[in-house]
Design a binder for these strands. Structure first.
Length: 588
RNA sequence: GGGGGCGUAGUGUAGGGGUUCAACAUGCCGGCCUGUCAAGCCGGAGAUCGCGGGUUCAAAUCCCGUCGCUCCCGCCA
């Protein structure tokens, strides 16, 4: 038997045709005489009927068949009797009357149902990922991912980009995340590293005159996992020569708009994407990846409360801290339990706690209300733009701490109030600082990476006031996710050496780690810049899921293990010998 | 590394010291049934409650430890 059609394909136009379908059995319905089953493949479902009068053999086989058996059905397409059509099925007007049924593979009862109805423990889903992938939502996600990548490739292909593959076995570089290392058999004691990103390679491609490069690149970082972080992940990595920041932003923005208009035309977009400076983002939302769907910007109330009788406020202000807060519209209905949950969340996030005020038509209700003057109460309501029925949430403390806490509180309140619509709230965050101070190690670190070009206006402060130098660096955020980031790169040897020196590399270390790049800059490196989009996150947002695991065929667990392949796993002593390694058990 | 959540028949859940505490749904096995489509009806099998220890006359239930999954912080240039 050979398959003639897919399971979602047959229509009344095929009536009378002899067809052969192959697929998985779903929902067998045995009426004794008539037996129905739904034959499923990735494309759809067709009802198959066995009638003992038509074929005793086919009927007998279908009696013995169970759910998820893989079968081939030969039969005739016929119209369903009046009143038995199923309008919920694309193939619902027809059915296939089986004349021959062949079991291609019998199936044991599945460890969990594939019908999407119940949520199943993720251990099982991961262990039997191939069964999980039979579920409609996972099928949708995988195909959405394929279409998204194709749309991005098509867009770049139409704009003179060329996809170039770069090595996965490459060199460990200092800074950044922990590398995944691969021992060398041929060079005892030496290691390849899996790339954290193709950053240096794509810069070398620019020196090589490629001009516009992209790659759907697998990247590896040996750090702890999150819902939006896997140790291996995929970036749409791109780089362009002879460009300014604006060129990169506008290319990426049109590419994303193209993608959304192609794949999700009903999702609302704000175009052009709003732009925030890094400072503005922190000031307004306490984070550099704000979810703009939520509204509720932060307001600084420090000046308003500096003289307050409320000790928490005055103490913090006296200690050079700040008081900031936001207004949760309509959340005056928060119960005591809700408020306690917010208190506890704020402490988890490192703050001392929150001060809440319920705004009513005759003032504010709050544990601290009687310690606030009428002017202070009015001032707060006005500054936070509150109306009766709203809840004000204030946090006092050091700026970093209250920003972290308010960011978390704002997102939590957003969830509680279901403020996140189906929009795709893209935004650019620009003007990142070039460097950040590492207080513990008492040295500067690159905010983005060491190859980021300082903004030209700030170049002269590189020696006098490094912390104030802004970078030509930009992030794309969407719905509270960091979707991608990029920068203009240093292409001048002297400047790169100066920056590496600021990052506490001795000339010898710089030469050892980045000599190949520095040397390349001597041989005609064009000005260049680029970007990288996190494909897993992008598809997760489009798919409407909370975790990138749902858009990765075989993801890893929180403990970085692959439950399907059971990796990582020990290897034989002979294998270790070959790569000159000995495993030393960790001392207890 | 730190904090939180979860773990009970194949699956999803209920039960929160004793006395229908091992239950419900679904799946599975068998039977009946000419039109179902999450088929229906009847019958049956299936869990020593993740694992180990402790408290107690008595533990699925309380305590400690451990393992696994998960969320957040740290970390992620």
């Amino acid at each position: 038997m050979r398959r003639t059609h897919r399971c979602g394909e047959l229509r009344p136009a095929h009536l009378g045709q002899q067809v052969t379908l192959m697929g998985w059995v779903r929902a067998r319905r045995d009426h004794g005489r008539l037996i129905f089953l739904d034959l499923w493949d990735h494309q759809g479902v067709t009802q198959v009927v066995a009638d003992p009068r038509a074929s005793a053999d086919a009927h007998g086989t279908m009696h013995a068949i169970r759910d998820e058996y893989v079968i081939a059905v030969q039969g005739v397409v016929r119209a369903r009797p009046k009143g038995t059509q199923n309008p919920e099925l694309a193939t619902g007007e027809i059915e296939v009357a089986a004349t021959a049924v062949e079991v291609l593979n019998a199936t044991a009862p599945l460890p969990f149902p594939t019908d999407d109805a119940d949520s199943v423990d993720e251990v099982l889903r991961m262990r039997y990922r191939y069964l999980d992938l039979r579920r409609a939502s996972m099928q949708r996600n995988l195909r959405l991912r394929h279409k998204a990548v194709k749309a991005l490739r098509d867009y770049l292909d139409g704009d003179d980009f060329v996809e170039v593959e770069t090595p996965v076995l490459t060199r460990s570089t200092p800074e950044g995340a922990r590398d995944y290392l691969v021992p060398s058999r041929i060079y005892p004691g030496s290691f390849y590293a899996l790339p954290q990103s193709p950053q240096q390679m794509k810069q070398l491609l620019m020196v090589g005159g490629v001009d516009r490069y992209y790659q759907v690149a697998r990247c590896f970082r040996d750090e702890d996992l999150r819902a939006d972080r896997q140790p291996e992940f995929t970036q749409l990595d791109l780089e362009m020569s002879f460009v300014e920041q604006e060129d990169v932003l506008s290319l990426v923005e049109s590419m994303m708009v193209h993608l959304v208009r192609t794949l999700a035309p009903d999702r609302r977009l704000t175009v052009p994407f709003p732009r925030l400076t890094h400072d503005e983002a922190l000031d307004l939302y306490g984070t550099d990846k704000p979810d703009l769907r939520l509204g509720m910007p932060l307001v600084d109330c420090t000046a308003l409360l500096g003289e307050s009788e409320v000790r928490i406020f005055s103490d913090v202000v006296a200690a050079d801290g700040r008081v900031k807060g936001f207004c949760a519209p309509g959340y005056g209905t928060a119960s005591t339990a809700d408020l306690e949950a917010l208190q506890s969340l704020s402490r988890t996030l490192g703050a001392e706690g929150i001060i809440w005020l319920q705004v009513t038509s005759h003032g504010v209700a709050s544990p601290v209300a009687r310690h606030l003057t009428p002017e202070e109460q009015r001032g707060l309501v006005e500054a936070l733009g509150a109306a009766p029925g709203d809840l004000l949430i204030l946090v006092a403390g050091a700026t970093d701490v209250i920003h972290g806490a308010l960011d978390g509180l704002r997102r939590d309140v957003g969830r509680r109030l279901s403020l996140a619509a189906a929009d795709l709230a893209f935004a650019w965050v620009v003007d990142f600082p070039l460097l950040k101070w590492d207080g513990e190690e008492r040295r500067w670190n690159a905010e983005h990476h060491p190859f980021t070009h300082p903004q030209p206006d700030d170049l002269d402060r590189l020696t006098t006031d490094p912390g104030s130098v802004r970078a030509s660096c930009y992030d794309l955020v969407c719905n509270g996710w960091e979707l991608g980031s990029g920068s203009l790169r240093v292409h001048e040897r002297a400047l790169q050496e100066q920056i590496l020196a600021l990052l506490a590399f001795t000339p010898e270390e710089a030469e050892a780690s980045f000599g190949h790049l520095l040397e390349a800059f001597d041989y005609g490196a064009p000005p260049h810049g680029g970007f990288a989009v996190g494909i897993d996150r992008l598809v997760a947002i489009l798919a409407g899921t909370d975790t990138i695991r749902d858009v990765i065929a075989f993801p890893k667990t929180r403990q970085a293990s692959d439950l399907t392949m059971r990796a990582p796993a020990p290897v034989t002593p002979a294998q270790l010998d070959e790569i000159h390694l000995r495993v030393v058990p960790r001392k207890a």
